[in-house]
Amino acid sequence: MTPALVCERLVKRYGDKTVVDRVGFHIDEGEAYGLLGPNGAGKTTTISMLVGLLRPDEGTVRVGGIDVGEDPVAAKRLIGYVPQEIALYPELTARENLRYFGRLYGLPRRELTSRIGEVLDLVGLTDRGDDKVGTYSGGMKRRTNIAVALLHRPRLLILDEPTVGVDPQSRVAILDRVEALVGEGMSLLYTSHYMEEVERVCTRVGIIDRGRVVADGTKRELVAELGGTDRVELTLDGDVTAAAEKLRAVEGVSESVVTGSSSIRLLVAGGRHLLPALLAAIGDAGAVTGVEVVEPDLEAAFLHLTGSTLRD
């Protein structure tokens, strides 16, 4: 079976800065693939090359077996692309926006009207479809942004952080729709700052850091790389920076990062047994108010591979 997407050794440079450095991965037909990476890792730049908006300096992209560089029009027909920023005409209604882009994707007029009804229903905006997009809330704009990409029933859906600024309820609704579409056989490329979204929707994950894919596999495979390392979440009152510094020196601690004004995340080999040593190391830098030891998970794998947290 032809993979939905294959990209190989993609390179993009701006001046002497290489922002995408030999990125390669593949997405099988019907598979949901997540691309995880901190801010500025090169996710959007990679996606721009996948959907034919940006010409790679090196490397190739094939969508459904079609080379994007050679036959961009045919390749783009297979892709539904949801840009990271809202890309809609604020002075038009959602229906008018959908009609315009639907026509650009070559949908015949007759079919278009009913299809617009379907996608509006899909994103839960049926009763607001005739209001100007400029009057929408952030979440409604996001949902319309997604609806546009679904009009032509793409084989591969590419979502670049589709849930930013969406309230938890709508986010769940969006994830449900996306899962349903994958269930119906659509392939998916998903980037997000929310680990739990990627964990829920995607079966395979690529981790990208400073322009490079540092790991790629199923959740289970990535976590296995951690070996016996546990994730420890500490809550404390006091100087978190100083505490994190002290913890880093403890034997068995491989990562120690500040995740909030009173929280620290650690990667610890043989977690539980090391707890007394950890508490002792903090000493007078702060008073520990909470400790949580978590089985190895994607969050831990991410920290292990990139030395940073996903959200900052």
Binding site: G52, V73, Y81, P83, A87
Partner: peptide, 15 residues
Amino acid sequence: QNGTLDRMRAAPIPL
């Protein structure tokens, strides 16, 4: 600036 130009460029039509 709106991003709609990129949307158009991502559509299956010549750039």
